[in-house]
Design a protein around this nucleic acid. Sequence first.
DNA 1: TCTATGCTTAGACTTATTCTAAATACAGAA
DNA 2: TTCTGTATTTAGAATAAGTCTAAGCATAGA
Lengths: 138, 138
Amino acid sequence: MKHNVEELLSTHGVKPTPQRMVIAEYLLSTHSHPTADDVFQAVKGKLPVSLSRATVYNTLNALVAKGVIQEVTTEAGRVRYDANMSDHHHFVDIETGNVIDIPAGTLNQIKLELGDQYKIRSFHVTIFGEVVGGKAKE
Amino acid sequence: MKHNVEELLSTHGVKPTPQRMVIAEYLLSTHSHPTADDVFQAVKGKLPVSLSRATVYNTLNALVAKGVIQEVTTEAGRVRYDANMSDHHHFVDIETGNVIDIPAGTLNQIKLELGDQYKIRSFHVTIFGEVVGGKAKE
DNA sequence: TCTATGCTTAGACTTATTCTAAATACAGAA
DNA sequence: TTCTGTATTTAGAATAAGTCTAAGCATAGA
Ligand SMILES: [Mn+2]
Ligand SMILES: [Mn+2]
Ligand SMILES: [Zn+2]
Ligand SMILES: [Zn+2]
C-alpha cells in the first residue's frame, strides 16, 4: 500500500513541503521506531538540497503536535518516533533493543495475545490522567 | 520508619560513603520521582564538603545497576529516579506533572483499583522480554 | 510584480550526561 | 603505625540531543 503522504499531512494541518514529505514517508515506511538522528541519516540524500537537523526536529515536533506520529520512550532518555497511531503497546527485545508493536487489547490478555514467541521479562504501565479532588499525595 | 541506609547500600554491594548515603537517604525519603538535578539540588549542602554532579550521576547509576533504585521515564527524554522497588506502575498527573505510585495488580483491575480519584486519559504498556524463535518482524 | 508569511538552513547555544585527570580517602599488608 | 594500592570524589572539559537565531528562500495571494 502506497501512502498518500501529501494528503495525510494536509488533512492534519501540516503543509506538505518536500522535506516534510520525505520525513513522513520514511516514518510511514518503517516499523523500527527510529530516533531523530536515525530519521536524519535515513532521509538526507533523498532531497536535491541539503537537509538541516533543525528541519528534522521541527518536522518531528510538528508531526507529533498534529497527531500524525507519536513519541515513544523505551530506554530512559531516548526518544523514538512512531507513525503507527493505532492503539498499541510496545515490546522491547532486551537482546537486540528492537521495539515491536503489540496491538492493544484488554491488558490482562496481553500474555495470551503475545503467544509463545514473546517471553515477558517485565512490563511497565504508565498512566496519564488527572487526579480529581486534589487529595492524592505527590 | 527510619531507613538504615548504610545497611541497605552494603547489602547491595555499594560501599556506603557519606555522599552515597545522603543521596540514597534523599531518594528513600521522597515519593516525588526526582530528576538527577533535583537530587543534586536537594542533597548539596547536606555535606561538609562540596558535592560534584559527577558524584550524583555516578551514585545514581551505581544504585540503578545494583538494584537499589530504578529509572522511570514518563515524559519523553526526562529521566527520573525512584527508590520504590515494589512492583508498581506510575500515574502521571497531566495537570501538574506529578508522578504517583500505583501498586501493581492484575492489569485489567487497574481502573477499579485506582477508583474515582483518578481519571485515566491514556496509558501505555511497555513490555521488556525476549523474542524466541527469531521470526518476529522488527 | 510585490509583499507578507512561512519554511529551511547553518551554526550558535543550551542542557543533560559522561569523561578525564588530579586529589583524597582508606582498607589491608607489612 | 606506616605504606601502598584501589576506590572515590572533585572540577572542569567533552559530548550529544535538542532548541534557538538570524538570514535567505519559496510562494500564495493582493
Ligand atoms: Mn518533543
Ligand atoms: Mn543511566
Ligand atoms: Zn509503535
Ligand atoms: Zn514509582
